[in-house]
Amino acid sequence: MNIFRLTGDLSHLAAIIILLLKIWKTRSCAGISGKSQILFALVFTSRYLDLLTSFISLYNTTMKVIYIGCAYATVYLIYAKFKATYDGNHDTFRVEFLVVPVGGLAFLVNHDFSPLEILWTFSIYLESVAILPQLFMISKTGEAETITTHYLFFLGLYRALYLINWIWRFYFEGFFDMIAIVAGVVQTILYCDFFYLYVTKGEGRSQLSIPT
Protein backbone atom coordinates (compact mmCIF):
# COMPACT_ATOMS: atom_id res chain seq x y z
CA MET A 1 0.00 0.00 0.00
CA ASN A 2 1.36 3.41 -0.94
CA ILE A 3 0.92 6.70 0.88
CA PHE A 4 -1.74 7.98 -1.56
CA ARG A 5 -3.92 4.93 -1.08
CA LEU A 6 -3.59 5.20 2.72
CA THR A 7 -4.32 8.92 2.89
CA GLY A 8 -7.20 8.32 0.46
CA ASP A 9 -8.71 5.75 2.80
CA LEU A 10 -8.21 8.04 5.81
CA SER A 11 -9.75 10.95 3.92
CA HIS A 12 -12.75 8.78 3.11
CA LEU A 13 -13.01 7.77 6.76
CA ALA A 14 -12.72 11.40 7.85
CA ALA A 15 -15.59 12.38 5.52
CA ILE A 16 -17.85 9.64 6.86
CA ILE A 17 -17.07 10.44 10.50
CA ILE A 18 -17.45 14.22 9.97
CA LEU A 19 -20.94 13.72 8.56
CA LEU A 20 -21.99 11.30 11.28
CA LEU A 21 -20.68 13.57 14.06
CA LYS A 22 -22.25 16.67 12.52
CA ILE A 23 -25.68 15.04 12.50
CA TRP A 24 -25.22 13.60 15.96
CA LYS A 25 -23.88 16.79 17.62
CA THR A 26 -26.38 19.18 16.04
CA ARG A 27 -29.23 16.65 16.37
CA SER A 28 -30.11 17.64 12.82
CA CYS A 29 -29.59 16.43 9.27
CA ALA A 30 -30.72 19.66 7.62
CA GLY A 31 -28.97 20.20 4.32
CA ILE A 32 -27.93 16.55 4.01
CA SER A 33 -29.28 14.46 1.16
CA GLY A 34 -30.68 11.23 2.55
CA LYS A 35 -30.79 9.88 -0.99
CA SER A 36 -27.02 10.22 -1.43
CA GLN A 37 -26.52 8.46 1.90
CA ILE A 38 -28.78 5.58 0.86
CA LEU A 39 -26.80 5.28 -2.38
CA PHE A 40 -23.52 5.16 -0.43
CA ALA A 41 -24.95 2.45 1.85
CA LEU A 42 -25.91 0.55 -1.32
CA VAL A 43 -22.40 1.10 -2.74
CA PHE A 44 -20.68 -0.33 0.34
CA THR A 45 -23.11 -3.23 0.63
CA SER A 46 -22.71 -4.36 -2.98
CA ARG A 47 -18.93 -3.89 -3.00
CA TYR A 48 -18.04 -5.45 0.32
CA LEU A 49 -19.95 -8.70 -0.11
CA ASP A 50 -16.49 -10.27 -0.41
CA LEU A 51 -16.27 -9.89 3.36
CA LEU A 52 -18.27 -13.12 3.37
CA THR A 53 -16.14 -14.96 0.81
CA SER A 54 -12.52 -13.89 1.28
CA PHE A 55 -10.19 -12.46 3.89
CA ILE A 56 -7.61 -9.96 2.62
CA SER A 57 -6.18 -8.32 5.72
CA LEU A 58 -7.21 -7.12 9.15
CA TYR A 59 -6.93 -3.53 7.89
CA ASN A 60 -9.15 -4.30 4.89
CA THR A 61 -11.84 -6.07 6.92
CA THR A 62 -11.85 -3.46 9.69
CA MET A 63 -12.21 -0.53 7.29
CA LYS A 64 -14.96 -2.25 5.31
CA VAL A 65 -16.94 -2.99 8.47
CA ILE A 66 -16.51 0.61 9.67
CA TYR A 67 -17.58 2.05 6.29
CA ILE A 68 -20.68 -0.15 6.10
CA GLY A 69 -21.58 0.43 9.77
CA CYS A 70 -21.22 4.21 9.48
CA ALA A 71 -23.18 4.32 6.21
CA TYR A 72 -26.16 2.54 7.77
CA ALA A 73 -25.87 4.57 10.99
CA THR A 74 -26.06 7.76 8.90
CA VAL A 75 -29.11 6.52 7.00
CA TYR A 76 -30.73 5.57 10.32
CA LEU A 77 -30.09 9.02 11.80
CA ILE A 78 -31.55 10.76 8.74
CA TYR A 79 -34.61 8.60 8.17
CA ALA A 80 -35.45 7.57 11.74
CA LYS A 81 -33.84 9.32 14.68
CA PHE A 82 -33.72 12.85 13.29
CA LYS A 83 -36.36 12.40 10.62
CA ALA A 84 -38.12 15.62 11.66
CA THR A 85 -35.07 17.66 10.62
CA TYR A 86 -34.66 15.93 7.27
CA ASP A 87 -35.10 18.37 4.43
CA GLY A 88 -37.03 16.03 2.11
CA ASN A 89 -38.62 18.85 0.12
CA HIS A 90 -35.22 19.83 -1.24
CA ASP A 91 -33.94 16.27 -1.66
CA THR A 92 -35.76 15.68 -4.91
CA PHE A 93 -33.14 14.11 -7.16
CA ARG A 94 -34.63 11.12 -8.99
CA VAL A 95 -32.27 8.32 -7.93
CA GLU A 96 -33.80 5.83 -10.35
CA PHE A 97 -32.17 7.89 -13.10
CA LEU A 98 -28.83 6.88 -11.57
CA VAL A 99 -29.45 3.36 -10.29
CA VAL A 100 -31.13 1.96 -13.42
CA PRO A 101 -28.54 3.11 -16.02
CA VAL A 102 -25.68 2.24 -13.66
CA GLY A 103 -27.18 -1.22 -13.11
CA GLY A 104 -27.51 -1.71 -16.85
CA LEU A 105 -23.94 -0.59 -17.45
CA ALA A 106 -22.65 -2.98 -14.78
CA PHE A 107 -24.32 -5.84 -16.66
CA LEU A 108 -22.83 -4.75 -19.98
CA VAL A 109 -19.33 -3.62 -19.03
CA ASN A 110 -17.67 -5.80 -16.40
CA HIS A 111 -14.63 -8.03 -15.95
CA ASP A 112 -16.64 -11.22 -15.53
CA PHE A 113 -20.32 -12.05 -15.86
CA SER A 114 -20.84 -13.44 -12.36
CA PRO A 115 -23.13 -12.13 -9.58
CA LEU A 116 -20.39 -10.92 -7.21
CA GLU A 117 -18.41 -9.38 -10.04
CA ILE A 118 -21.44 -7.54 -11.46
CA LEU A 119 -22.29 -6.23 -7.98
CA TRP A 120 -18.71 -5.06 -7.51
CA THR A 121 -18.82 -3.27 -10.87
CA PHE A 122 -22.24 -1.81 -10.01
CA SER A 123 -20.82 -0.39 -6.77
CA ILE A 124 -17.87 1.21 -8.58
CA TYR A 125 -20.15 2.88 -11.14
CA LEU A 126 -22.74 3.89 -8.55
CA GLU A 127 -20.16 5.41 -6.22
CA SER A 128 -18.96 7.70 -9.00
CA VAL A 129 -22.38 9.39 -9.20
CA ALA A 130 -23.81 8.79 -5.70
CA ILE A 131 -23.00 12.33 -4.58
CA LEU A 132 -25.21 13.91 -7.26
CA PRO A 133 -28.38 14.09 -5.08
CA GLN A 134 -26.31 15.97 -2.45
CA LEU A 135 -24.83 18.40 -4.99
CA PHE A 136 -28.28 18.84 -6.55
CA MET A 137 -29.74 19.65 -3.12
CA ILE A 138 -27.04 22.26 -2.46
CA SER A 139 -27.57 23.88 -5.85
CA LYS A 140 -31.30 23.95 -5.14
CA THR A 141 -31.05 25.61 -1.73
CA GLY A 142 -28.07 27.67 -2.91
CA GLU A 143 -25.98 27.07 0.19
CA ALA A 144 -24.27 24.53 2.37
CA GLU A 145 -23.13 24.65 5.97
CA THR A 146 -19.36 24.78 6.43
CA ILE A 147 -19.24 21.35 8.04
CA THR A 148 -21.11 19.90 5.06
CA THR A 149 -18.54 21.43 2.73
CA HIS A 150 -15.75 19.83 4.80
CA TYR A 151 -17.54 16.50 4.37
CA LEU A 152 -17.71 16.98 0.59
CA PHE A 153 -14.09 18.12 0.46
CA PHE A 154 -12.78 14.97 2.15
CA LEU A 155 -15.08 12.78 0.08
CA GLY A 156 -13.78 14.32 -3.14
CA LEU A 157 -10.17 14.29 -1.91
CA TYR A 158 -10.44 10.55 -1.25
CA ARG A 159 -11.10 9.66 -4.89
CA ALA A 160 -8.56 12.18 -6.15
CA LEU A 161 -5.93 10.50 -3.94
CA TYR A 162 -7.01 7.12 -5.28
CA LEU A 163 -6.38 8.41 -8.80
CA ILE A 164 -2.81 9.33 -7.81
CA ASN A 165 -2.56 5.88 -6.20
CA TRP A 166 -3.52 4.26 -9.52
CA ILE A 167 -0.98 6.37 -11.44
CA TRP A 168 1.63 5.30 -8.88
CA ARG A 169 0.62 1.65 -9.18
CA PHE A 170 0.73 1.83 -12.98
CA TYR A 171 4.29 3.13 -12.94
CA PHE A 172 5.67 0.99 -10.15
CA GLU A 173 3.59 -2.19 -10.39
CA GLY A 174 2.35 -2.08 -13.97
CA PHE A 175 -1.14 -2.38 -12.53
CA PHE A 176 -4.27 -0.80 -13.84
CA ASP A 177 -8.01 -1.50 -13.75
CA MET A 178 -9.90 0.33 -16.46
CA ILE A 179 -13.33 0.14 -14.78
CA ALA A 180 -12.07 1.60 -11.50
CA ILE A 181 -9.98 4.26 -13.22
CA VAL A 182 -12.69 5.55 -15.59
CA ALA A 183 -15.29 5.62 -12.80
CA GLY A 184 -12.75 7.25 -10.48
CA VAL A 185 -12.01 9.98 -13.02
CA VAL A 186 -15.75 10.66 -13.48
CA GLN A 187 -16.23 10.76 -9.71
CA THR A 188 -13.36 13.20 -9.20
CA ILE A 189 -14.52 15.46 -12.05
CA LEU A 190 -17.94 15.80 -10.38
CA TYR A 191 -16.20 17.37 -7.38
CA CYS A 192 -14.05 19.82 -9.37
CA ASP A 193 -16.60 22.62 -9.42
CA PHE A 194 -17.14 22.15 -5.70
CA PHE A 195 -13.36 22.07 -4.98
CA TYR A 196 -13.00 25.38 -6.79
CA LEU A 197 -15.73 27.02 -4.70
CA TYR A 198 -14.42 25.43 -1.50
CA VAL A 199 -10.94 26.84 -2.02
CA THR A 200 -11.88 30.27 -3.36
CA LYS A 201 -14.96 31.05 -1.30
CA GLY A 202 -14.93 28.66 1.64
CA GLU A 203 -12.18 30.38 3.62
CA GLY A 204 -13.42 32.24 6.64
CA ARG A 205 -17.08 31.99 5.77
CA SER A 206 -19.74 30.29 7.77
CA GLN A 207 -21.62 29.20 4.71
CA LEU A 208 -20.75 28.29 1.18
CA SER A 209 -23.08 29.73 -1.40
CA ILE A 210 -23.21 28.02 -4.73
CA PRO A 211 -24.48 30.09 -7.64
CA THR A 212 -27.37 28.34 -9.31
Binding site: R5, D9, S57, D112, R169, F175, D177
Partner: peptide, 10 residues
Protein backbone atom coordinates in the same frame (compact mmCIF):
# COMPACT_ATOMS: atom_id res chain seq x y z
CA UNK B 1 -12.53 -11.02 -13.41
CA UNK B 2 -11.18 -8.00 -11.55
CA UNK B 3 -7.82 -8.85 -10.06
CA UNK B 4 -7.32 -9.39 -6.33
CA UNK B 5 -5.09 -6.36 -6.48
CA UNK B 6 -8.04 -4.00 -7.05
CA UNK B 7 -10.24 -5.92 -4.63
CA UNK B 8 -7.66 -5.20 -1.94
CA UNK B 9 -8.59 -1.53 -2.31
CA UNK B 10 -11.58 -0.01 -0.58
Amino acid sequence: EATDSIKDEL
